[in-house]
């Protein structure tokens, strides 16, 4: 009960933040009523998906300080579970999604146990390695379509199919992912002030100190890693139904893992709004740069060059991300 209450308790934020967040929430709710551009709609869905990815990453990476660069493997587990179950046995999304979460979490416990014996850089690289191993295995596994991947053919279903999450119009997908987005915010809001949330922040600061306060550092990290995994896997399942075409390279590749981590770090790791801000900046930037520059006159890659420059600037000048800048400005005003 107390946990539920604290999920809805935003009282420790300044009133300005809450008002802005409220306005944005209302905007997100009514956005589809005004916009008829398919491009804007697709971008918004991407933004929401990556916000939720980022929120998940933020639990272990931001609050826990464990730079995880292998989140894509869990996107893959979620996506493949949903796709395989739907294609082979016609099992709807709302059953396959929780099952995907369970599988992803189980896998996260198996590799999390050895993984968290490593620290810092070594940990980060090892997460990449595990993710690539799984991707390679999926690329040769005939049952899941090997390198060709899987395709959900929408013709078989009647639109709109709420059970299987097969829609023709993006607006339905929009509201589904928006629901996950709000649930995600509430969960992380409760998480950051829960016992585990406090323990993680203590671990991020100093592991010896944390263990002197009775915190089982290894176990706390594994638990949080599983929570982050659940977030990512849910969106992975959604991804399968939304994109309808999943390949190992797209759903489990390193690029996706990096993007998830970058999003959260750029916005501000370890803050509630950070991943959302990161996604809000990077996703539209990415799709608009691509639409404007990438498509035109053989300038493939220029969008990502600009993107990379922004990342480099942020990391060198303000390592706490965009939210770090906001807080800095705010504190200066205060004094």
């Amino acid at each position: 009960m107390e946990t539920l209450k604290s999920a809805f308790d935003f009282s420790d934020f300044p009133r300005l933040d809450i008002s802005i967040a409220g306005i944005i929430a209302i905007f997100l709710l009514v956005f589809p009523l005004f916009s008829h551009s398919a491009f804007a709609m697709a971008t918004m869905i991407q933004f929401l998906m990556f916000s939720v990815y980022g929120m998940g990453w933020n639990t272990i990476g931001g609050y826990g300080g464990q730079v995880d660069l292998g989140k894509a493997q869990y996107v893959g587990i979620g996506a493949y579970t949903t796709a395989v179950l739907l294609i082979r046995w016609n099992i709807p999304f709302w059953f396959s999604m929780p099952l995907g979460v369970c599988l992803a979490m189980a896998w996260s416990f198996i590799i999390g146990y050895p993984l968290f014996r490593l620290k810092g850089h070594y940990f980060a690289i090892a997460t990449i390695a595990t993710s690539l191993v799984l991707m390679d295995l999926f690329s040769v596994w005939e049952f899941v379509g090997a390198a060709r991947g899987l395709e959900i053919s929408p013709i078989k279903y009647h639109y709109p199919d709420f059970w299987r999450l097969i829609f023709k119009k993006d607006i339905y997908y929009y509201y589904v992912i928006l629901g996950f987005f709000f649930v995600g915010i509430l969960y992380v809001n409760g998480f950051r002030r829960s016992r585990l949330g406090f323990q993680l922040r203590s671990i991020r600061d100093n592991e010896e100190m944390a263990s002197s306060l009775g915190i089982n550092v290894h176990w706390a990290k594994i638990k949080t890693y599983a929570i982050a995994t659940a977030f990512v896997s849910v969106v992975g399942s959604f991804h399968a139904c939304y994109i309808k075409n999943i390949e190992p390279q797209d759903t489990m590749g390193l690029d996706l893992s990096i993007l998830i981590a970058l999003m959260a770090m750029l916005g501000g790791a370890g803050s509630l709004w950070g991943p959302i801000i990161g996604a809000a900046v990077l996703i539209p930037l990415k799709s608009y740069l691509k639409a404007w520059l990438g498509g035109a006159a053989g300038l493939a890659g220029i969008d990502l060059v600009i993107y990379a420059v922004i990342i480099m600037l942020i990391s060198a000048l303000e390592p706490r991300g965009i939210w770090g800048i906001v807080e800095k400005v705010r504190r200066r005003r205060w004094q």
Binding site: R201, R204, A210
Partner: peptide, 18 residues
């Protein structure tokens, strides 16, 4: 000393959460 990224009360709370 105590965790620098946490406030004073948050630090003590980490202890109390045991």
């Amino acid at each position: 000393a105590a965790s620098g990224d946490l406030t004073v009360i948050e630090n003590v709370m980490v202890g109390c959460f045991m």
